[in-house]
Design a protein around this nucleic acid. Structure first.
Lengths: 194, 194
DNA sequence: GGACGCATGTAAGTCGTTACATGATTCC
DNA sequence: GGAATCATGTAACGACTTACATGCGTCC
């Protein structure tokens, strides 16, 4: 899924600026399973405009730079849905430097191992908060992706968010149950070596 | 973490060919949290050889093409460990086309939604099997990464593998508990619209 | 004063994927 | 006969990241 398609998807819920789209991927609905940076979003929006998939309105703001609010065209909407129907979804890919590093825990100072696990846990707690569909979603993005006029999340979004929550929960739970044991085992092994 | 570092890590456990390294990432220990393709592994190994991080021995085989078996040099080992100590681990990134698509379940045919969920589940079942540290690890890779001379996985590897298992388990569990409800809800909504 | 949030955009460069090229063997 | 596994390698291409460029406002 290239950034163009991702942008179309982000605009399915409501109009948005490039900056807001990035936020959807950074802290919002999409945050735990897709990413996109501004450097790729802006060119994508330009291209989509050229192709007639989106239009934008320039909106002046007080005390803020002007912004371009993008909106799907019916052509864009159709194209996006067609893409969804035709695309065989790519494989999931999960990359984690921390897990890779933890794999070598035996070669690392125990303090580092512990710090890595703690950071891993902290990040997952963060994610858990970000994807909670019921709670805040902050103030902004009143009509963010997957919400109807009343702000209620769509079934698909609730499902995906719930799945994300479950994954985070399981991760945190596993760490709670196994961290101390691992640290202890590593300490014991180090002692034996000396 | 670039492919070079990943290759060094893969060679920490035992000597291996480029082909075998890819297998570690594709089906082995690393499979659920890192990936690398042959097109990036081979150039990486060439570069690492030039830099004195690895050496290789050409081994002739019967009924098989010759292979280059790579091995860490002590310099390579030191460099790798230094990298681990110095590198701030990058953020985890998880990308999933399927989850992205499921977010738009309301706009999709219910059959497609169901197929997507099933495929998601199937892939996670696959992963679960691949990362099981106790079980098969097939026949090959007798001294794969994270195993000592007796084939026992290191504590770090066991921890990471257990975490992966827990995540898969949670995912599959969530699907078991929520799939039918979602499908039903989508059907009801579609009925109402007509 | 400096960092951060809002806001857009470009350009250079990295990194990796995909596809191509080759070739023997084994299994269906 | 064709596909898959083992095995290595290159080259083109594409996609995204990073950094740069600009500028105002707010908060500490």
């Amino acid at each position: 899924m290239d950034v163009r398609t991702l942008c179309l998807g982000a605009l399915m819920g409501s109009e948005a600026t490039g900056y807001e789209i990035r936020k959807m991927f950074e802290d919002g609905t999409f945050s735990h399973f897709q990413i996109a940076s501004l450097g790729s979003i802006y060119p994508a929006l330009t291209k989509l405009t050229q192709d007639g998939m989106v239009t934008f309105v320039e909106r002046e703001q007080e005390n803020r730079p002007d912004k371009k609010v993008y909106q799907l065209t019916s052509e864009g909407r159709r194209t996006f849905l067609r893409t969804l129907l035709q695309t065989r979804p790519g494989e999931d890919r999960y990359r984690s430097d921390i897990l890779f590093m933890l794999t070598f825990a035996e070669e690392l100072p125990v303090e580092l191992t512990e710090a890595l696990i703690d950071e891993f846990a902290a990040r997952h707690e963060m994610t858990q908060i970000q994807i909670d569909p019921e709670n805040p979603e902050k103030d902004n993005c009143p009509l963010a992706h997957g919400r109807d006029e009343n702000g209620a999340p769509s079934p698909g979004c609730r499902f995906v968010a719930g799945l994300g929550q479950a994954m985070c929960e399981a991760t945190l739970d596993f760490i709670r149950r196994n961290k101390d044991g691992l640290i202890e085992e590593l300490r014991t092994r180090k002692d034996k070596k000396t």
